[in-house]
């Protein structure tokens, strides 16, 4: 599956003072991929994500989205171009209902101005109707229909993750970045999430996912990037990565050399 490259990182570096959080990381995500990024705690995965989505500016390097550099652009503009993301520590609009959360996702796809809203003209009515109809369709797709009027903050943890993904889908993005979507989930929920991510991938969304859990990534991703201490130590298919010396060292440590010495 040699698709065209949709998201590309070129020698991305991010330093916080003396700390090299991300050092010369390259990445090429192709259309239709489920691209996994793994690495131990503090490997710089989330920092790298934040650079891709415009929350941080890299110290050096370039990010190309559909061939266009998105460095120095604000997150809201990158979102508009078709990149959606979720957060490691779920960032829902807790005091809004689930449907209202989804509605915010439609922000860019509607054009109602304050004036339209005040006089309630056709534009406003059409926009609102589309938002509600498509919002409900998304909720059905992710299996959250029954929660549509529940306050997002009152939902179970696993469901909140799903609301966050649904909200990202409302953007109708080309690519979705998921930051540790399985964190804090039990095995059952994790499994359901895996199927869910594979399903939305089949619908044509390219997905980049950060995960701790090797099993989760290895069984789902078709390409994996491994980070350790801010540096890329391996990239390739799950099979290749599994056999990589450095990855094994990073995850399991060096084996005891029983041959001699200490």
């Amino acid at each position: 599956m040699m698709g065209e490259v949709i998201l590309e990182a070129k020698e991305i570096c991010k330093y916080f003072g003396g700390l090299k959080a991300v050092e010369k990381v390259d990445m090429q995500v192709e259309k239709g991929d489920i691209f996994g990024i793994i690495g131990p705690n503090g490997a710089g995965k989330t920092t790298f994500f934040n650079i891709c989505s415009g929350i941080y500016q890299p110290t050096s390097g370039d990010i190309l989205f559909n061939g266009e550099s998105i460095i120095n652009q604000r997150p809201e503009h990158i979102a508009k171009k078709g990149m959606a993301r979720t957060f490691q520590n779920i960032k829902l609009f807790k005091n809004m209902s689930v449907l209202e959360n989804i509605k915010i996702g439609f922000h860019n796809r509607t054009k109602t101005t304050m004036f339209d809203a005040i006089i309630r003209n056709k534009k406003y009515r059409v926009d609102e109707e589309v938002i509600v109809r498509e919002g409900i369709a998304i909720l059905e797709k992710v299996g959250l229909s029954e929660y549509r009027d529940t306050l997002a903050g009152n939902m179970a943890y696993g469901l909140q993750r799903r609301v966050e993904i649904a909200r990202a889908l409302a953007l109708d993005p080309q690519i979705i970045l998921l930051d540790e979507p399985a964190a804090g989930m039990n095995p059952m929920e994790t499994h359901a999430l895996m199927t869910f991510i594979q399903n939305i991938n089949k619908e044509g969304y390219t997905i980049v996912v950060i995960e701790h859990d090797m099993k989760f990534i290895m069984s789902m991703a078709n390409k994996v990037l491994v980070l350790n201490f801010g540096q890329k130590i391996a990239e390739g298919t799950p099979e290749q990565v599994k056999q990589d010396e450095e990855v094994i060292v990073a995850y399991f440590g060096k084996g005891l050399d029983l041959g001699g010495g200490h």
Partner: peptide
């Protein structure tokens, strides 16, 4: 509710 999330959704 959450400014960072709002921005990530294009607001």
């Amino acid at each position: 509710e959450d400014e960072a999330a709002a921005r990530s959704l294009g607001v």
